[in-house]
Each structure stands twice: as structure tokens, then as C-alpha cells.
């Protein structure tokens, strides 16, 4: 089971975080700080895996962003590496060649994609098409509701 996923930039700024086990705010901050420092200090030729307390950390760098996943002892490292890659592919497809700014300004979408792809720390849907369809369906509903509100406001002469 995936314990948590962190996305951070090369400068050490946290961009996304998803926790699948309950932690206090304080311990989240502490874990994040320690982990970012550890991962950033590693050299490019080193392996993508490291042991950290009783967890295994799998990370990969895409352009200026680090994707970092904490898994349990019994989990498969290479599979996690590809889980990260699949998530990046999903972001890429949704945003159309994704960059850090997309994630900063549309972080809620990135979280929605997480929810469709990984649920409660386990992989849910591995088909790219199905995930993107679910996200698009949500977008349509959101749009419709916005439209409705706008028309109500217009009826009242407020818009």
C-alpha cells in the first residue's frame, strides 16, 4: 500500500501531497522536510530507491519536479516507479504536455486525477482512457453547474 505521495520542485518547494494514512500536521511537516532534503541531496546516478525508517521510498525526477512515493516493505519498487510514470502520463495527457505551472495553478485537477487513479493507497484504474473519461465527465458536470448559476444570476439581473 502506498503511504503517501509528495511532489516537490528542485528548489525544495512542495507542490502536491497526498497522504493515505492519518498523520498529524506536525509529523507531516517533519516527514516532508526530512524527505525533501534526503532526496535532493542524492546524485543522478544513484538508484531510485532508498530505505527510510520502516518504509521504502521510490522517487523519480521529471524535469524540475520530483515525484516521491513511500511504500511498505512488501511492495514492489519497480511497479511503484511505473505507477509514478503512469500518473505523469495522465497529467501530460490531461494538460497537454504538463509543466510545473499547470500543477501549481490547477492543483485541484491534479488531485482529482489522483483520486481516479489511486484510491486509499491502492491502484484503482490503470487504463489511461478510463481515468481521463472520468475526469472529463466531472469537468462537464462542473461546467453545467456553473452555467446554471450564471443563468440564475442573469435572471435576477445581477450578472
Amino acid at each position: 500500500m502506498i503511504q503517501f505521495i509528495l511532489l516537490f520542485s528542485r528548489q525544495g518547494k512542495l507542490r502536491l501531497q497526498k497522504w493515505y494514512t492519518s498523520q498529524t500536521e506536525k509529523s507531516k511537516k517533519k516527514i516532508t522536510r526530512e524527505l525533501i532534503a534526503t532526496v535532493l541531496s542524492r546524485k543522478p546516478k544513484m538508484s531510485s530507491f532508498l530505505e527510510w525508517k520502516d518504509l521504502k521510498i521510490v522517487y523519480k525526477r521529471y524535469a524540475s519536479l520530483y515525484f516521491c512515493c513511500a511504500i511498505e516493505q512488501e511492495d514492489n519498487e519497480l511497479l511503484t516507479l511505473e505507477t509514478i510514470h503512469r500518473y505523469v502520463e495522465l497529467l501530460d495527457k490531461y494538460f497537454g504536455s504538463v509543466c510545473e505551472l499547470d500543477i501549481i495553478f490547477n492543483f485541484e485537477k491534479a488531485y482529482f486525477i489522483f483520486d481516479e487513479f489511486i484510491l486509499g493507497g491502492e491502484i484503482q484504474e490503470t487504463s489511461k482512457k478510463s481515468v481521463l473519461k472520468a475526469i472529463n465527465d466531472q469537468d462537464v458536470i462542473q461546467e453545467e453547474e456553473l452555467e446554471e448559476k450564471r443563468s440564475v444570476l442573469e435572471d435576477l439581473g445581477l450578472a
Binding site: 514492489n76 511497479l79 511505473e82 505507477t83 503512469r86 490503470t126 487504463s127 489511461k128 482512457k129 478510463s130
Partner: peptide
């Protein structure tokens, strides 16, 4: 089809079954 990932089929399912 869509569950093939880089020429390997249904790998998430495969790994989980082995687990």
C-alpha cells in the same frame, strides 16, 4: 488494449495476483 503498458499486459493485476 488499454490495459497494456509498454507491451506488458495487465501488469498491475499480475503483480497483485502474485502478491
Amino acid at each position: 488494449q488499454d490495459y497494456t503498458y509498454y507491451f506488458v499486459s495487465a501488469l498491475w493485476l499480475c503483480v497483485k495476483l502474485l502478491r
